[in-house]
Computed example of a mutant assay.
Amino acid sequence: MPWKVLIADDDPNVREIIRLYFRQQQIELVEAPDGASALSMLAEAKPDIVILDVMMPGLDGFETCREIMKRCEIPVIMLTAKNDEIDRVLGLELGADDYMTKPFSPRELVARIKAIFRRMQKGQAAIEADSPAQYEFDDLVIHVPRREVNVGSEKIDLRPKEFELLAFFAKSPGSVFTREQLLQQVWGYEFSGDMRTVDVHVKKLREKLSPCPHACIHTVWGVGYKFEVEACT
């Protein structure tokens, strides 16, 4: 299918390299020189995915990502000239789906984009396979087809990957999963991120489930995580 990608990067050489390669791949590219311009183009361009450079003048990539997450549900890839873990973690915590360190190959960038769309297409089918219409754990209710989570009368706002992670845990409460297993089962076997990705999403999920005193995601030290339905202490 033809994709439309919005890129925000203040380096015209980077945009040109990506533009030429995307043209070969029949991917439409919308270009913005900074974060503020990208935000102004977002509603009209209606891209399928956004690529954000971290180091931009004015509104940087992190602030732009934060604002995008307020406006819509759309995949985001962060580009960073640094390989610092703090940059990767912050981008993921803000809701980015992936990150790449400059310099990078345009071919790899396209591969990452394809991987994200594969995961999106498989995600709903995967969580619905052999799943009930909903899971109920005391006052925690997970509506699978509607992708909604409620604690009592309160609706919990989850990002798509957070929901898929919770739905996967809910299938097997009490079972321990390694980070590698979670990357394979929730993100997809082809996912090329690091183990920190799982930690960041678990942290965010714990925070959002805090209104529920009965459902906890426990850390099993040296192994991974497990979801249990019990009174939290």
Rank of each mutant, 00 (worst) to 15 (best):
I217L: 09
E63V: 02
L52S: 01
E207H: 09
N83L: 07
I77W: 02
G174R: 03
E164Q: 15
K70P: 03
Y99D: 07
L52C: 01
K70L: 09
F117W: 08
Y21L: 00
K46I: 04
D60S: 06
D194F: 06
R206F: 09
H218K: 14
L205D: 01
V220E: 14
C72S: 14
M41D: 06
A126W: 05
R19D: 03
A111L: 12
E31P: 02
Y135V: 01
R206H: 06
D130F: 10
V54L: 09
C212N: 11
M120R: 14
K82C: 09
D60V: 06
E93S: 11
E128K: 10
E228Y: 01
H218F: 12
C212V: 08
P47A: 09
A43S: 13
C232T: 07
E230T: 12
T178A: 10
V54S: 06
M100K: 05
R196H: 11
F163D: 06
S192F: 03
P47M: 07
E207T: 11
Q26H: 12
A38P: 04
T101L: 06
F169L: 13
F62P: 01
V149R: 02
V176K: 02
G224S: 03
V89P: 02
A43N: 13
P173N: 07
L209N: 02
M69C: 04
R66S: 07
E180A: 13
K122H: 09
A133N: 15
V149S: 00
L52M: 04
G152E: 02
